[in-house]
Amino acid sequence: MAARVVDLTKVYGTGMAEVRALDGVTLDIGAGEFTAVMGPSGSGKSTLMHCCAALDTPTAGEVYLGDTEIGGLDDKRLTRLRRERIGFVFQSFNLIPTLTAEENILLPLSIAGRRPDREWYDTVIDTVSLRDRLRHRPNQLSGGQQQRVAVARALVSRPAIVFADEPTGNLDSRSGAEVLALLRRSVAEFGQTIVMVSHDPVAAGYTDRVVFLADGRLAGELREPTREAVLERMAAQEAGR
């Protein structure tokens, strides 16, 4: 088990303005699995990821990363947790513009004061096929290349879990497919656990499991999803509302 949330509730605002972004979600994320969290806008999928990734604190319920319950941790411990056990890929603005691709990739390690494992680093670089782009700054890279750098950065510190927030949202379909294939490969070849938030049925097709959220609650899941199955499920959900 890579991560687990129990009865997770997140409330924004109070009184009339109260919004229940998550309402008692309980979910296990299997280790070595590629999980997609899907749902329409406002379904709570981003909030779920932020809580799991120690970026946001839940109103109630528990979040476990491995055996660690992160609810009681202070900022310092949370930062360390993110640094050592979590990798991130965001939708956009993923890289530090002043650093080269290589420096960006190694950033989490050097911040933590860790030396990169040379062999692993080479493996990652080859996997994302960026060897000839390492000395470039982000503004010299295409969107797809930037996102691959971000994936490499997430992988290089061998985190327990990688969270990807709409990683293909800003990319054209070919670049998007490259990034998704890359994520798929890292699960297949390296046993990496990945949780991806997306509303793209194509993206979901690359995953092992799709979890559907609606109005802050779990609304079923699919194993070994295909694009068609996901579309069907989404249509059904839309109709059931």
Binding site: A53, L55, D75, K76, T79, R80, R82, R83, E84, G87, F88, F90, F93, N94, L95, I96, P97, L107, P108, I111, A112, R153
Partner: peptide, 14 residues
């Protein structure tokens, strides 16, 4: 701001 947020997310402490 965004850059700082990113750095914090990937493990830069305060």
């Amino acid at each position: 701001t965004r850059e700082i947020g990113l750095l914090r997310a990937i493990g830069v402490d305060r």
